[in-house]
Design a protein around this nucleic acid. Sequence first.
DNA 1: CCTGTGCATTGACTTGGGTTAAGAAATGAA
DNA 2: TTCATTTCTTAACCCAAGTCAATGCACAGG
Lengths: 191, 191
Amino acid sequence: MNTDNLLVAYFSQYMDLSPEEIEVIKNTDIIREYAKNTVLLEAGQVAKNCFLVLKGCVRRYYIQDGEERIMDFYTENDPITPASYVSQTPSEYYLSCVEPSVISSGTDESTQEFIAKFPQFVPMFIKIGDQLSVKKQLSFDNFKNQSPEDRYQQLVASRPDLINRVPQYMIASYLGIKPESLSRIRKRLFS
Amino acid sequence: MNTDNLLVAYFSQYMDLSPEEIEVIKNTDIIREYAKNTVLLEAGQVAKNCFLVLKGCVRRYYIQDGEERIMDFYTENDPITPASYVSQTPSEYYLSCVEPSVISSGTDESTQEFIAKFPQFVPMFIKIGDQLSVKKQLSFDNFKNQSPEDRYQQLVASRPDLINRVPQYMIASYLGIKPESLSRIRKRLFS
DNA sequence: CCTGTGCATTGACTTGGGTTAAGAAATGAA
DNA sequence: TTCATTTCTTAACCCAAGTCAATGCACAGG
């Protein structure tokens, strides 16, 4: 698989690229394939990278009293900026691959070099950041406003792929409930 | 009250300011006082401004089935960037003053003018944005991971001022529960 | 093929928040 | 001060999620 094209496709969502710029993108970032269950960031470590999921699925989770609490699933074209990467303090949470995944890694230096060379990308970065931030706020709002049952129905509607590619007990954790409860919700809904 | 100094104080948190820069800050933004219960943004309207709370308290809330669902309280030095301001689509939520408040308003034009004149402020803006985004993610994580009782205890510990300046039924809404439940939680904790 | 492991379901019971309704306490205006 | 309104508390009952335990089911490895 030519993984470089995935990154070019990602940037193309936001702006038209000259052949020259395409070359730069192909050469700038580190792209790697990771096996299922590969841990990208461990709690306690300081993140050295931010990520962009090009293919596959990554989950973000805490471990509390030996239990995983899943906060997010990242899939195709989702950027991941760990809090630990921004603050350079030990991470409170883990990142690991739910599926075999193709992921682009960035560092502070690589990003700044990139921006210095190609300032025309800055408005795009800002736009992506704004959109992301708004999206996050709205999903928080939804979570707060809805019952677990509502949240499950909305998830099925908005991210049907997730339901199929992720085990149900992870979906339950993501929804903030126990697997048994999700089972009962499904029973209530589908019968 | 000399409200200009509040804005200068805000910027000084993040970088040292020359006398010249201080003059610019004093002249650039619109600062106004608002009475208690003034609505800054109404659901259905497209936001024309982003805000910075210099003094007082603003709440962000939806109205669902005639009930207010409070998502956030913004107090001294909290910036407010409405989703509607970013996307230029009608707002889903309201912003209104819980107390008489002093608030600085910004527009797209004023911000861009400001940046064009003083590019040295850009890294600061980016830093503020990053910090804000991380802070939001962490408070979402906390909300998901904790019971209403935990959430109340943490709020008392982390923002004790809010408990005093905001009516309890608003705190309850903010915690995602009914006033009656918060009453019971307090009884459980303090007796 | 059988077996072990991990995942999903079901049932009985507990617990804590929602609902409804009433009344007490605090606040503010006349 | 008095009265009205808003806010907070309490009680009884309901319901959905948590807990604990057993069972079913699918898939992988031997």
